[in-house]
Write a protein that binds this DNA or RNA. Structure first.
Length: 596
RNA sequence: GGAGCCGUAGCUCAGUUUGGUUAGAGCACUCGACUGUCACUCGAGAGGUCGCGGGUUCGAGCCCCGUCGGCUCCGCCA
C-alpha cells in the first residue's frame, strides 16, 4: 500500500492515529470524537478517535486552565471536539501497548466542543466481550455503527479493493464506461425493480440486473476492453450473502478466448488478495462441470478437503437391498463418500447427517462402517464378504451412500460432504482453494414445463465441437462458460458470447423465444451483432462477496455502508415508503388497497 | 410463499421451565468524591407500553391465538 497522504487541514495538524514517539515535543491540533473519558477529579483523560485511530489526551491543571479541565470533565461520549496541545512521551510504566499511539499522549492546552452529542443510542466504544447491539439497531443507527473501528476497516478495505480493481484493469487497457441505470425490463432471470415513466403512461423502466447487453454492444462499438464497477439490482429474497442491490466488477473484451479471460482474472484476483495481504496461486486449478458434479456433487466444490464421491453401484447391483436395486433399475446409481475414521461418529450425529441429506432431497442415507474387519450398518446384511474391500473401506472408516438419480444424489452428497467436512474439522482453514469450473451445460430443462432454459444466459456461446448437437441433443451441448470458485463460494462467472447473429437467433428459438419476441426484447443486440461484431466475452465478479471474504466478515451487510434488511428494507432512511397520491397520479399509477 | 430462532431499562442480558407481593444485574445516563487513568475507582440517583393486539385466568413478562420487526435457512436469485 502506498504511504498515506496527510489528512492535515486548516483546522487540524494531525490525525489521532498518526502520532508516535518521534512526534514528542510537537505542538498539534486534533479533531475527533470522544471515544471514552476517564475523569479522576482534577485530572481527566480522553481517548480521542477518528478514522485513523485513538490517541489519549490528558487534561492536567499543571498545563492548562482549570476551566479547560472542568470542560473536559463534562464531555459526553461521541461529542466532537478540537484539542490543541503538545505531544509528550509517556513514562515507561504508563505506556499503553494495545494502542499504536500508546507511547505518547497529547497534553491539552485548549479544548473546544464543536459537535456536542446526545448520549448515543448504541455504544460505539464497547465493553470488552459484550455482544454487538441487535442488528436492527445497528442498521437504524447506522452512522453510529459505522463509527466502530471494525466496520470502518471493512469500508476502507472495500475502497482499496475498488481502487485496486480500477488500476489493475485500467493499466491493461480496459476502459471504464458507465451504462444506464434506467433500462429495459427483462422477463428472463430475476424479478426486475421497475421505475414508472411519468412521460409515457403505463410504461416502465427497469433497474439493471447486470449491464450484460450494454457491455456486448460496447464490444460491437469497438471499445475492445471495458470494465465497470457496476451496481446491479435483483428483486429476489435476501440471504446473508445476497442484497437486492449489489456491486459487480463487470468485464468484457474483444478478440479474446476463454484462456485470455482466465489469465486476466487470475491476475486481478492476485492483485485484490494482495491488497488484503494474502497470496494466491499463480494459476488456479480447473475442473469441468461434469467432473465437479460427479466427484463433488456441486458446481462450486470446496476443495479444502477431500471426501470425494465414488460410485458404489456395483456393490449393490445384485443384492436384495431394495432401495439400491430399485434406484439402479431406474437408471440411477448408488454413490457416496468415504469418511476416514468415521466409524466413531455417534448415532445422533449420523441421524443429523441423514436429516441434512433428506433436506437436500435424498430419500435416506445408507451408513456402512468397518470395524474389526466387518461391515456394520442396517444395509450390511445384504452385502457379500468382499464388499468392504470393494468399497475400499479401511478399518474404522465409514461410507455414507445415497441411492437415486444424479439430480438427487449429487445435491444430497454435496450437503453431506460439507457437513462431514465441518463436523470432523477436515476443512483446512488456512488454505485458499481457487478453482475454475468450465464447460457448463448450455441448457437445462425445466422439470415442470420441459422447456429448455439457459444455464448461464442466452448470449453464451456453445462449445464449437457441440454446435452440431444443438438440435439433436441440446442438453448435452457444452457452453463456453466458466465460474471461478473459492472455498465453495462462487466469486464470479462469465462466458464467451455469441457474436454470430444467425447462431444467436437459433439459440433464441431453441429457448422457445420466437422471432417477434426476440426482436422486441433483444432487437438492439441482434441488430448490433449484424452490424459487425468481434469475437468477445467477459466475466463479472460479485464485488461485495469478495470484500466480505477479504474482510473476514460474516455478512454482506458488514461490507456495505448502508445495507438492506432481510425484508429488503432500509431501516436508516426508511425505504421503501408510501408516496403522496398526487405523485402516483402523475405516474399514472393507482394503488389497489390490500385485500381488495 | 414455507420453516426455525429472537424481541424485557438507552445498550447487553437474567427472570418464562412450575402464572402469584414492588420485574433485576452490568454498562451507559444524572449528581457527588477522587492528580496518572487507559473497560479508572467509589457513593447516591433516575430510568420499564416486558414489540403490538386479542384471549384464558381471581391474577399474565410467563399460557393460547393473531400481528409487526430483526436474523438464519428452503423456494427464488437467466
Amino acid at each position: 500500500m502506498p504511504a498515506s497522504p496527510s489528512l492535515a487541514t486548516t483546522i487540524r495538524t494531525h490525525t489521532c492515529g498518526a502520532l508516535r514517539a518521534a512526534d514528542a515535543g510537537a505542538e498539534v491540533r486534533l479533531g475527533g470524537w470522544v471515544h471514552r473519558k476517564r475523569d479522576l477529579g482534577e485530572l481527566v483523560f480522553v481517548d480521542l478517535r477518528d478514522r485513523t485511530g485513538l490517541i489519549q489526551i490528558s487534561f492536567d491543571p499543571r498545563f492548562t486552565s482549570s476551566e479547560t479541565v472542568s470542560l473536559a470533565a463534562t464531555l459526553g461520549p461521541e461529542s466532537v471536539v478540537l484539542v490543541e496541545g503538545e505531544v509528550v512521551a509517556r513514562p515507561t510504566e504508563m505506556r499503553n501497548h494495545e494502542l499504536p499511539t500508546g507511547d505518547v499522549e497529547v497534553r491539552a492546552k485548549s479544548l473546544k466542543i464543536v459537535g456536542p452529542s446526545v448520549a448515543p443510542a448504541i455504544p460505539v466504544a464497547r465493553v470488552r466481550g459484550e455482544p454487538l447491539p441487535a442488528e436492527e439497531l445497528r442498521l437504524r443507527h447506522r452512522y453510529l455503527d459505522l463509527r466502530r473501528p471494525e466496520l470502518q476497516e471493512n469500508i476502507i478495505l472495500r475502497h482499496r479493493l475498488m481502487q485496486t480493481s480500477r488500476k489493475f484493469l485500467s493499466d491493461r487497457g480496459f476502459l471504464e464506461v458507465e451504462t444506464p441505470i434506467l433500462t429495459k425490463p427483462t422477463p428472463e432471470g430475476a424479478r426486475d425493480y421497475l421505475v414508472p415513466s411519468r412521460v409515457h403512461a403505463s410504461e416502465f423502466y427497469a433497474l439493471p440486473q447486470s449491464p450484460q447487453l450494454y457491455k456486448q454492444l460496447l464490444m460491437v462499438a469497438g471499445f475492445d476492453r471495458y470494465f465497470q464497477i457496476a451496481r446491479c439490482f435483483r428483486d429476489e429474497d435476501l440471504r446473508v450473502d445476497r442484497q437486492p442491490e449489489f456491486t459487480q466488477i463487470d468485464i468484457e473484451a474483444s478478440f479474446i478466448d476463454q484462456d485470455d479471460i482466465v489469465a486476466l482474472t487470475e491476475g486481478l484476483i492476485a492483485a485484490l488478495w494482495g491488497e488484503a495481504g494474502l497470496e494466491v496461486p499463480a494459476s488456479f486449478r480447473r475442473m469441468s462441470y461434469a467432473d465437479a458434479m460427479e466427484r463433488y456433487g456441486s458446481d462450486r466444490p470446496d476443495l479444502r478437503y477431500e471426501l470425494e464421491i465414488f460410485d458404489a453401484s456395483d456393490v449393490f447391483r445384485d443384492t436384495e437391498f431394495t432401495i439400491a436395486r430399485a434406484a439402479i433399475a431406474q437408471g440411477g446409481r448408488v454413490r457416496g463418500i468415504r469418511v476416514p475414521g468415521g466409524s466413531g461418529l455417534s448415532r445422533k450425529q449420523l441421524d443429523e447427517l441423514e436429516a441434512s441429506a433428506k433436506s437436500a432431497g435424498a430419500g435416506g442415507l445408507v451408513r456402512l462402517k468397518r470395524t474389526n474387519g466387518q461391515l456394520e450398518g442396517p444395509a450390511a446384511k445384504f452385502l457379500h464378504d468382499g464388499a468392504a474391500t470393494q468399497l475400499a473401506l479401511g478399518e474404522g472408516d465409514l461410507a455414507l451412500l445415497v441411492a437415486g438419480p444424479n439430480h438427487v444424489s449429487s445435491p444430497a452428497l454435496d450437503r453431506v460432504r460439507q457437513d462431514v467436512g465441518r463436523r470432523l474439522a477436515l476443512v483446512k482453514e488456512d488454505v485458499r482453494s481457487f478453482l475454475w469450473v468450465t464447460d457448463f451445460p448450455l441448457f437445462e430443462r425445466d422439470p415442470g414445463t420441459g422447456r429448455l432454459a439457459a444455464v448461464h444466459h442466452p448470449f453464451t456461446a456453445p462449445h464449437p465441437a457441440d454446435v452440431a448437437k444443438l438440435d439433436s441433443a441440446p442438453e448435452t451441448v457444452r457452453a463456453r462458460a466458466y465460474d471461478v470458485v473459492l472455498n465453495g463460494t462462487e466469486l464470479g462467472g462469465g462466458s464467451i458470447r455469441i457474436s454470430d447473429p444467425a447462431l444467436q437467433s437459433r439459440i433464441f428459438s431453441l429457448l422457445g423465444i420466437d422471432e417477434a419476441t426476440a426482436s422486441a426484447r433483444f432487437g438492439f443486440l441482434l441488430e448490433g451483432l449484424r452490424a459487425g461484431a468481434p469475437p468477445h466475452g467477459g466475466i463479472a465478479f460479485g464485488f461485495d462477496r469478495i470484500a466480505m471474504q477479504l474482510a473476514g466478515a460474516a455478512s454482506l451487510r458488514d461490507v456495505i455502508a448502508f445495507p438492506k434488511t432481510t425484508a429488503a428494507r432500509a431501516l436508516f432512511e426508511g425505504a421503501p415508503s408510501a408516496v403522496p397520491r398526487e405523485d402516483l397520479k402523475e405516474l399514472h399509477i393507482r394503488i389497489e388497497e390490500p385485500g381488495t
